[in-house]
């Protein structure tokens, strides 16, 4: 991860409200649709004089962040997790997400926010985080690179407490159809045939799953809210938040003590309402009850994978 020194710090007075960010993004998208500059939507931004795309060397920061315990409780209930004095990793992601979003809607950010596809997350949950701790969040974007379907970027968020990093997450997004000047897209890799593992669970997701998640963590992206709002953005129907799926998976799989790492890759969206078959099992060769576990979600009764991931204790 590149050092802070190279980046300019933008201190935000408080965690921005995501609703406003989405409203702004929708407006921009609409404007760019009219302009029709890029197929992915959005205006060409951050291009330097020779036309190369560059990420702005900025990081957005919120220095003081307090956890609303009521919100924590609502989150834990939503995920079917135990209500306890311990911040779940996806909840922390939710705290940091508006700051990351702030990076992505920054004028200098070269990719369009809306229409970007959430590909994966990798998170280091370095130690237990208590709700009473004062947290700080900083976020930046890095490693803009080609993807076989367009361009992808990592948005990194780091949460600190008492001067040390306690949580670090990397979210990878894809802007479909965007070609990075001077970079060629890699070949589309061979897609392995998905074979469903032994099911250990089943999630029945109601039509309001996205609204319920947004109600707790504030991610009001229209593609998650209603069928209508999703269709307005060109989707077939509204889909579950990727982080909601990660949260459900972690509720059963995260270790109760100490730090851990986890990752998730999204293979296909979960349309709402919908039923997800789920599997969690020891990763290859593991027998330790708190060893690395692998999890997978797929469409009920079908061989269409939605996501897969792992949790490993540190």
């Amino acid at each position: 991860m590149s050092g802070t020194a190279e980046r300019r710090c933008i201190d935000l007075p408080e965690v921005p409200a995501l609703g406003g960010i989405y409203a702004a993004a929708v407006k921009k998208t609409a404007a760019s649709r009219i302009g029709g500059v890029l197929p992915g939507g959005g205006r060409r931004r951050g291009a330097d004089d020779d036309g190369r795309w560059q990420l702005p060397a900025v990081e957005h920061r919120v220095r003081r962040l307090r956890v609303d315990t009521g919100r924590l409780t609502r989150y834990q209930r939503l995920m079917g997790d135990t209500v306890r004095e311990d911040l779940p990793s996806v909840f922390v992601h939710g705290l940091a997400f508006p700051v990351a979003m702030s990076v992505m809607v920054d004028d200098g950010f070269p990719l369009p926010l809306l229409g970007m596809v959430h590909l994966s997350n990798r998170v280091e949950h370095l130690r237990r985080i208590r709700p009473g701790e004062e947290l700080s969040v900083r976020a930046w974007a890095e490693d803009l690179r080609p993807h076989f379907a367009g361009a992808q970027v990592d948005v990194v968020a780091e949460v600190g407490a008492g001067g040390e990093a306690v949580w670090r997450g990397v979210s990878t997004y894809l802007a479909k159809g965007v070609d990075l000047p001077g970079r060629t897209r890699p070949e589309r890799p061979e897609k392995p045939v998905f074979t469903a593992p032994t099911r250990t669970g089943q999630w029945r997701l109601a039509a309001d799953t996205g609204r319920a998640y947004a109600g707790v963590l504030g991610d009001w992206n229209p593609i998650h809210l209603t069928s209508l709002s999703a269709r307005a953005l060109g989707m077939k129907r509204h889909i579950a938040h990727g982080m909601y799926l990660a949260g459900r998976a972690l509720a059963g799989a995260a270790p109760r003590e100490g730090g851990y790492e986890w990752g998730i890759e999204f293979a296909s969206p979960v349309f709402l309402p919908g039923t997800v078959d789920f599997s969690v099992a020891d990763a290859e060769g593991g027998a330790d009850p708190y060893g690395t576990v692998a999890f997978t979600g797929w469409r009920r009764g079908a061989s269409r994978e939605h996501f897969s991931g792992y949790v490993a204790p540190r």
Binding site: R199, T200, G201, Q202, R204, F278
Partner: peptide, 11 residues
């Protein structure tokens, strides 16, 4: 259904 898995006993 089992609360933690969402699967019925039969499943």
């Amino acid at each position: 259904g089992e609360p933690r898995t969402g699967l019925s006993m039969g499943e």
